Computed example of a mutant assay.
Amino acid sequence: MFVKGVTKRVSFLVSVATIPLLLGYHAISILMFTFIAFMMQFFRDPERTPPSDENLIVAPADGRRLSGKIDRIEVVGSDYPLIDRIFPDGGGGILISTFMSPFDVHVNRAPVSGRVVYTEHVDGRFRVARSKILTENEKNLIVIKTDYGNVGVVQIAGFVARRIVQYVEEGEYVERGDRIGMIRFGSRVDLVLPENCEVLVRTGSRPMAGETAVARFNPE
Score class of each variant (00 low, 15 high):
46 P>N: 00
158 G>C: 01
171 G>A: 12
172 E>R: 12
67 S>K: 15
197 C>E: 08
38 F>T: 10
205 S>D: 11
196 N>W: 00
66 L>D: 15
56 L>G: 00
92 G>F: 07
90 G>I: 08
125 R>T: 13
166 Q>F: 02
1 M>G: 14
79 D>S: 15
139 K>S: 12
78 S>H: 14
188 R>P: 04
55 N>D: 01
123 D>C: 09
76 V>Q: 04
18 T>F: 15
28 I>T: 10
3 V>W: 12
42 F>S: 11
80 Y>W: 14
124 G>P: 12
86 I>Y: 11
92 G>V: 06
64 R>A: 15
194 P>W: 02
45 D>K: 13
73 I>S: 03
82 L>I: 10
116 V>Q: 06
35 F>N: 10
72 R>C: 14
142 I>N: 05
46 P>K: 05
171 G>N: 13
50 P>W: 01
139 K>Y: 07
102 P>N: 07
18 T>W: 12
97 S>K: 12
149 G>M: 00
89 D>P: 08
80 Y>G: 10
40 M>Y: 09
210 G>N: 06
149 G>Y: 01
190 D>S: 06
10 V>K: 04
4 K>Y: 01
34 T>R: 06
219 P>K: 03
84 D>V: 09
17 A>K: 00
73 I>H: 02
88 P>N: 00
62 D>H: 14
101 S>R: 09
214 V>F: 02
56 L>Q: 02
128 V>M: 13
80 Y>H: 15
39 M>C: 13
69 K>R: 15
135 T>G: 15
83 I>N: 02
194 P>D: 05
193 L>C: 02
209 A>W: 02
212 T>K: 00
